[in-house]
Design a binder for these strands. Structure first.
Length: 495
RNA sequence: GUCCUCAUCGUCUAGUCAGGUCCAGGACACCGGCCUUUCACGCCGGCAACACCGGUUCAAAUCCGGUUGGGGACGCCA
């Protein structure tokens, strides 16, 4: 049995976007499921557009997602000699030929054909039958040339079996004599990709459906290079909600994996969202542990039709696909607190409000707090923003609670310090006694208890909503509660 | 334009290969209710789809043909 070997070959010409991440995920899942290997190959043969920053971004994104690889990263540019040798072999074996046609002229012809809506806009094969003498003459004249693949002159259909789509076929006459080596001598994607997949002994090529026509040409390359054909699986594309291709230029950061890292997504939650965008286990299960997903995954169950990344620009409520957020929330509030804690720690560190005591003598307090507040949060970011008051004093008191629960009751300026005095006197300071105290005082003042409680929430947490008020008092602690209740200037700034 | 390909709720999808158990199931979103002197969480309920037309069949979301619609490719990019 031959080894199962897959690869993820991004070109470092941009960030890692969600479509690429999903492709990487599918490759990774299948490799892990089959006990195979995943190879990471950076396809940087386009030196004009490739950047080191892109490579770093892609590596960082994969690392964040937890998509690890067994070999690589290899850099395609390091194997240029190998690619050139492959081109030479094709030339020597008569599977390719030198073409001296000027790029500019061909481009003009191609555009004209496209504009005239002609059936076939490929190369007219003018150089295909040049004699050795003619070729020598042109070379002696210093004419530059590319190398084109000589599509076999055959009747019938060229095809391959796709694990997702089934049998894919096309008539041989539809295949252009495509260029495999540029006029500067550097080999192109179609060839490099195949040469590398052969060298890396790739058994399964799992890539987007935008590669379907490339695959037809590459099938010919495998044949000409006398190499066994890998198994192909073309996964559906991810489009935006207008069914257009997603791109950073038109959609912005939301299509970049980096964005989700920065927004405080849980890496596994994001993988879970991505895998469902084009695949389903065939059951109603939607949440998977890593091992469950690896075991459930299969190429056969990948969908044929393209999926939509349901993002609406400028949506007031959802900053990305609502399903992605929902999945993240699910993990945020159900994952073991011991697994969540280090992620919250990282978030607090980055926000500059981490206290080493949270890892030590205040450990149980810390775990209690995140357990209490995580139900209302969407991402890890919320722990340092909406949840800031639990960890720091520099929290912001938001407009909404001020307007709704404070402004209508100017007397709070006096009531809250009074409440502070009474709470300060409690010993022991328990939720029950604090509640009795607040209710009794509200009754004395002929106010609804809610007036005091909502105002307390506003000044203690800065938020309009949150956990039960008396749970908040306990975790914030008597001393801090009393001190904050006296800071009424935070509610009523000097006019 | 040509070639390739796809088509189930607003979105992700189950069901299609082996036609009947599907007047189509789940999730997200949305709406309503319960819980809650906050807001969520949670729970309960609701809205909502087989693109269209033919054919085959006792029976079609499912098989066949066509139409329409979507997407991809048509680079000396990857």
């Amino acid at each position: 049995m031959t080894e199962i070997r897959l690869r993820f070959p991004p070109s470092p010409t941009g960030y890692l976007h969600i479509g690429g991440a999903r492709t990487a995920l599918y490759n990774w899942l299948y490799a892990r499921k089959m006990g195979g290997k995943l190879i990471l190959r950076i396809e940087d043969t386009d030196s004009e557009r490739s950047t080191e920053a892109s490579t770093d971004g892609i590596l960082d994104g994969l690392k964040w997602l937890g998509i690890d690889y067994d070999e690589g990263p290899y850099f395609q540019s390091h194997f240029a000699a190998n690619h050139r040798a492959a081109a030479q072999r094709l030339l020597d074996s008569g599977h390719a030929y030198k073409c001296f046609c000027a790029k500019e002229e061909l481009e003009v012809k191609r555009q004209a054909a496209l504009a005239a809506k002609l059936p076939f806009v490929g190369y007219d094969r003018a150089c295909r039958h040049l004699t050795p003498e003619q070729i020598a003459a042109k070379e002696d004249a210093g004419l530059p040339h590319v190398i084109r693949f000589k599509t076999p002159d055959r009747q019938g259909m060229l095809g391959y079996n796709d694990m997702v789509l089934g049998r894919i076929e096309v008539n041989y006459k539809e295949i252009d004599d495509f260029v495999i080596v540029r006029s500067d001598g550097s080999p192109l994607y179609l060839l490099c990709n195949v040469a590398d997949d052969i060298r890396d002994r790739i058994s399964h090529v799992v890539r987007g459906q935008d590669h379907m026509t490339n695959t037809l040409k590459q099938v010919l390359l495998y044949e000409a290079l006398a190499a066994p054909l890998p198994i192909f699986a073309h996964i559906p594309l991810t489009l935006d909600n207008k069914k257009a291709k997603i791109s950073k230029r038109s959609h912005g950061e939301v299509v970049a994996v980096q964005f989700y890292k920065e927004m405080g997504f849980l890496p596994w939650a994001f993988n879970n969202y991505l895998v469902l965008l084009g695949w389903s286990p065939g059951t109603d299960q939607e949440f998977f542990s890593r091992d469950e997903l690896i075991s459930a995954f299969s190429l056969e169950r990948i969908n044929k039709s393209s999926a939509i990344f349901n993002y609406t620009k400028g949506d007031a409520k959802f900053f990305t696909d609502p399903k992605a957020i929902a999945i993240n929330e699910h993990y945020l509030r159900t994952m073991p607190i011991a697994e969540l804690a280090p992620l919250v720690e990282e978030e607090l560190r980055q926000a500059g409000i981490w206290d080493e005591a949270y890892a030590d003598e205040k450990r149980s307090w810390f775990l209690e707090v995140i357990t209490l507040i995580r139900d209302r949060f969407h991402t890890l970011k919320d722990f340092s923003t909406a949840g800031r008051a639990y960890f720091a004093e520099d929290y912001v008191i938001e407009e909404k609670p001020l307007k709704k629960n404070v402004a209508p009751y100017p007397e709070l300026k006096n009531w809250l310090p009074l409440l502070a005095d009474r709470l300060a006197a409690l010993n022991p300071f328990t939720a029950e006694r604090a509640e009795e105290t607040a209710r009794a005082m509200a009754e004395e003042l002929s106010q609804k208890p809610g007036v005091l409680m909502n105002a307390m929430r506003a000044i203690l947490t800065g938020q309009l909503a949150g956990p039960a008020m008396f749970d908040i008092l306990l975790v914030i602690g008597q001393e801090t509660v009393v001190r904050r209740l006296r800071q009424t200037e935070r509610l009523f700034p000097a006019q």
